[in-house]
Design a protein around this nucleic acid. Structure first.
Lengths: 132, 132, 132, 132
DNA sequence: GTGGTCTAGACCACG
DNA sequence: GTGGTCTAGACCACC
């Protein structure tokens, strides 16, 4: 998986890494159990500081997206931390995003269609979302 | 309109103010032409510095959500800056949000329903979004 | 002559008034010797403070565009203060404007044509500019 | 690049900085990709407050003239935000400037020649203005 | 009284 | 060490 960094972006580098890995997991580009590059490797690939990659990995670990094995490096985990902590933050973010969309002239229909399209791009490993 | 600030949040205060005003406009709590509190007023109400409020107002002005009237302070504007610059950022944010939702067990149906509900809470003054 | 004020503009009201009167003189809408409305009159017409109009008139007087007669109010003057003080400021403003234009993709040809068009809209009373 | 500040000028310091950098980019004294001094550096060089420099940089960033790199400070950007928002403001400024020039005895020919000269001083990196 | 500008100095996030 | 954020307080331009 190739990580693309924009150093001039408003989004801090460690978050760009974190976000791209999450999207990679979602789209199936990264599969459960797959190994991620070592901190050292990715840092040198991208040309950034090791601490920055380390920070991204730690966040992903805390969120449950990856597991870090001291001997074998980081691997994609099977079980993100679950919806309970996630949903409230998601609802707030979504509310803001939808308000901005509406005020900027994006119609409800247009928005829902976009959601449908984006959701269909997701390839989820487990069928957890059917059960809950 | 009451602004609620969480000083311990990760979101900077000026952004919390900005976000709440945007949502206020979207939900109709703030109507077009309505005056916002003066910088000094809001700062003393919330118990923060003038400059922090000023920064939030300036961002809102640049985004086109409000206009600053030299005589009577700020008021809600009729025309945000438009969708062209907004949509790409929105698509990126939404893609990330949807990926996270899917991975955290939020089903597509559930997500779409939430979008529908949130969109219906919006009270847009003009019908611009129908036209475009 | 109708003065149009935008209270939410970045340009202060007194400058908007000053600018519109200068343009009025240039386009011939205001002719030499013509009376301007009294400060009181214009202030009530536009719905602004008398002090603001007064400030605009004083600037115009100092620049030589108008003369203020205590008995008969303000009249368009025949002789602006002349080029000596004006040209350096003009060159600086023009340099900035041209730089911004070039950087924003306005070609030299396009700019010159615009200048030609705008210059032709000017109806100068005296033929001073031919002599100098 | 040396920034010259006139603290007694009517033009606020942050605007003086902004203008000089824009002109620096236009004349080629600052080339695309070139690093600008850090906020702290320029502030101490000029002998003003960090926040004032910061404000200038933020405006330049919003206008698209520079990008702020989280690692090494600000650098000159390749792409200003484009002409669409710029042209109307430019036409207004130019109209006022031309009117004043004509009234102060600057002939059309003289003005056009000045424009030609100033335009030729611009060294634009890309040939965007030819294409548009 | 309003917002605009500027200062001096502090703490934090980022890399 | 970089920029980002926030504070407290000052002076000025505008209306």
């Amino acid at each position: 998986m190739v990580i693309q960094i924009t150093t001039t972006s408003e989004v801090p580098i460690y978050l760009q890494i974190r976000n791209q890995i999450v999207i990679g997991i979602g789209t199936g580009e990264l599969t459960v159990g797959q190994s991620l590059p070592t901190v050292r490797q990715m840092a040198s690939d991208i040309g950034i500081n090791m601490m920055t990659v380390n920070k991204a990995y730690n966040i992903l670990k805390n969120e449950g997206y990856i597991e870090i094995d001291r001997r074998h490096g980081a691997k994609v985990s099977q079980t993100p931390n679950g919806r309970k902590e996630f949903v409230p933050k998601m609802e707030y973010d979504l509310k803001l995003l939808i308000t901005e969309s509406a005020l900027n002239g994006v119609s409800k229909q247009e928005f829902i269609e976009l959601c449908n399209r984006l959701y269909d791009e997701i390839k989820v490993e487990n069928d957890k979302e059917e059960i809950l």
